[in-house]
Design a protein around this nucleic acid. Structure first.
Lengths: 207, 207
DNA sequence: ACACAGTCGACCAATGTGGTCAATACTAAT
DNA sequence: ATTAGTATTGACCACATTGGTCGACTGTGT
């Protein structure tokens, strides 16, 4: 890991980060190709190994960076004073979108890491990941007003149902916009559509 | 494609089919490795190319077989006389489970094909796939009793919400059982859990 | 003119690829 | 026991790709 990497202008740095995260997210660590990364990032092969000692160093850097960013932007940006669960989920989704704008593959990169074998990464990173999980649970469920929900359903189960629903919408949207360049899209109509769905969720799960 | 393949005992044939479907589903056509397939299937390299002319023939055979099977087992097994949408979804899920028992990766194999570039496969297969889509829509939405739903929500949107929810449950279950051998699992508790969730969905979306 | 950081991509040994085929193991009939 | 024929294997092939190196080149500031 070479300090010179931090001295790059952000545009180039992000291009490298995004290319690498996309490759690792899609292929997993072993099958990810550094050739593909440099091609996608538009840099020479030499530069990648000038900035990073080797493939593993790059991977660990991306994990560190991604976990930090998720912790900061995703969860520290959530205030737990609003006790409405669905609003809480809405805000988390909005924060994910913010991250997505700058690093389109970070969420899925971290996501695939969560499912992967973590025995091969340094303790430091595993620790950071566990901290993230803990914080995530806190931010998602802490100080939620149970009395908003209908009394004839199990609220814990409703949490799950609502989260699955929102994830489902996110997945569909991702598939629908798969071919488009992200910055060419006006997101407001989708934000509206999303909020319409949330309104239904409130109507059916709340009393 | 060699007729000898059909003369194999079903256990061995299914082992090959499953190994290949898993590899193609996980890696995509290009990156899928025939070495990995024969290793997973427990056969010698030569046999694969004795049964199938080449990698592409194998892939096309799996598509044909998978699409046929999905069409038959998944959709032809659904009767549209029960007009309850959630029950309909339950039955489709049960059918998926049946397929999963024999071919654990068929659903995701077909699923990744749906998202992939289909320009490189024969017309015959694309046709079959389009027929499957058409049939799927029919079987899922035909003759549904709209009056079961609450009057204060858009029923079409409710369809989507319910489907996302069920997919979310299926995904979670898949992740939860990822390490287990499928035939060692008693599925009844999960079936019960699933039905509990569906009961909530009925309570909140129906009137 | 010089120094020097930044950048590239041809190149390397090693590994993996789809596919072949001579050599076996197995089966059944004589 | 011999034969014929089929089922099966894995070493092997030419070729592509891998992670990583390094000498050559560019651009900038002095």
């Amino acid at each position: 890991m070479n300090d010179k990497f931090f001295k790059l202008d952000q545009e180039k740095r992000d291009r490298i980060i995004n290319a690498a995260m996309q490759e690792f997210a899609e292929q997993g660590y072993d099958k990810a190709s550094t050739n593909q990364i440099v091609k996608q990032a538009g840099i020479g092969k030499g530069m990648l190994f000038y900035y990073f000692d080797n493939k593993q160093t790059l991977y660990h850097y991306l994990l560190d960076y991604g976990l930090d960013m998720t912790l900061d932007k995703l969860f520290n940006g959530i205030d737990t004073s609003d006790r409405d669960f669905i609003e809480r989920m809405y805000k988390i989704t909005e924060q994910k979108l913010e991250i997505f704008k700058q690093y389109p593959d970070m969420i899925s990169f971290i996501g695939t890491f969560m499912l992967s074998d973590q025995s091969a990464v340094p303790d430091r990173i595993v620790k950071k990941y566990e901290e993230l999980q803990k914080k995530g649970l806190e931010k998602a469920y802490e100080n939620i007003d149970y009395s908003l929900f209908r009394e004839d359903i199990d609220v814990e189960k409703a949490f799950k149902l609502i989260q699955w629903t929102i994830d489902g919408y996110a997945n569909e949207l991702k598939a629908r916009l798969h071919n488009h360049k992200f910055n060419e899209i006006d997101l407001d109509p989708y934000r509206q559509e999303f909020y319409d769905y949330l309104a239904i969720l409130k109507r059916v799960y709340y009393q």
